[in-house]
């Protein structure tokens, strides 16, 4: 209907090959396809060991931890902000909880509440400084990362809290096994949180507002009456809160609160989000995509071990995967529906 020139001014539409339907499918299911290929690859290369229960246990533990963090990071990236401090909002609240339980005799429930409060407070500070002092979230959360790194090491001391002997139904629910099966609770949490956040992003007003707030600095959203500042602050809290929860669940599982837990999660969570199709310019992204992204990184992590590849190559391979995922995303930009 409209002239080519008129259309061309309203979005970077690259020359297309193949149908839009195919591209939409690829955008939605591409990461899943990659994951399946990866699984097949490692299963073959390891001579069938990779999909054994023991290896799957290790893989899902990694995925559960990273996945929940990646969901929060995805929400935040959709509303146009970054959080580089998630590796610390992952570990600091958990260590705080461990320290409270082991050193001060604080009841487990109270220690958990305090730790979650700390996690959310981290996001609140990130959000308030970003939104009201107008410092780029990149810088704000980098500063937060550095500050919390010191705090984490201080609280952890040379003798990190050990809660192995603490028995509590709450700790079991957070990090135990799921109803007598061999499935770990954190994995159930990942699925539950993934489902809830998917519903929120696609089926709630807050989800719409989160996406709108991420487009062009939220200016259009603001003009449409969306409280952009509040939306962003809530997403900062959501991001750090989910990271904190994930870290706490890990510590509840392992029984030890070590300061090096989740060390690379700030970067890996962004990689997972990008594999899942989040736009670096905000406005678009997918919660299931982030979970699949975390799965890809988890499978890579244990897959390389099983196939005897040296550990130091892991992070480099993740880098390559990131480049490929980002390139595919850019190629598919503007080809998806708005849903």
């Amino acid at each position: 209907m409209m002239g080519i020139q008129e259309r061309a001014t309203f979005g970077a539409i690259s020359p297309s090959k193949g149908s839009d339907t195919a591209r939409r499918f690829l955008r939605g299911s591409g990461p899943l396809l990659g994951l399946v290929i990866l699984l097949g690859l490692f299963q073959t290369a390891s001579g069938g060991v990779f999909l054994s229960p023991a290896m799957m246990g290790a893989t899902t533990a990694f995925i559960s931890g990273l996945g929940v963090v990646a969901i929060g990071v995805t929400m935040l990236m959709i509303c146009g902000e970054f959080d580089l401090s998630v590796s610390q909002s992952f570990v600091f609240p958990a260590i705080t909880m461990g320290a409270l339980i082991t050193r001060t005799d604080t009841p487990v429930y109270l220690a958990f509440m305090i730790a979650m409060g700390v996690a959310i407070l981290i996001g609140l500070i990130n959000g308030l400084v970003t939104v009201y002092f107008k410092v780029d979230s990149f810088i704000v959360t980098l500063a937060m990362l550095l500050i919390l790194t010191s705090l984490t090491l201080t609280v952890a001391t040379t003798n990190p809290p050990n809660i192995l002997d603490v028995s509590s139904p709450l700790l079991d629910a957070l990090g135990g096994t799921f109803l007598g099966t061999s499935i770990k609770a954190p994995f159930i949490w990942l699925l539950l949180i993934g489902a809830i956040m998917t519903l929120i992003l696609t089926g709630s007003r807050f989800g719409s507002w989160t996406r709108a707030s991420g487009v062009r600095g939220g200016q259009s959203a603001l003009a449409m009456g969306v409280p952009v500042k509040s939306v962003k602050i809530v997403n900062f809290c959501l991001c750090s809160g989910l990271s904190g929860f994930s870290g706490i669940a890990l510590v509840a599982d392992i029984g030890l609160a070590r300061p090096d837990f989740g060390q690379n999660f700030n970067l890996l969570a962004i990689v997972a989000a990008v594999i899942g199709g989040v736009s670096l310019f905000g406005g678009r992204g997918s919660v299931p995509g982030a979970v699949v992204g975390a799965c890809v990184l988890g499978v890579l992590s244990t897959g390389l071990i099983v196939t005897g590849v040296d550990q130091q190559f892991y992070i480099g391979i993740v880098g390559l995967v990131l480049l490929i995922a980002a390139y595919i995303n850019i190629r598919l930009e503007g080809r998806e529906t708005g849903e």
Partner: peptide
């Protein structure tokens, strides 16, 4: 600024008045 580029058309229609 009238329209949010990355939202679907119907979400734009109801944005802020869902």
């Amino acid at each position: 600024l009238a329209i949010v580029d990355d939202l679907s058309i119907w979400r734009n229609f109801f944005l802020g008045r869902e």
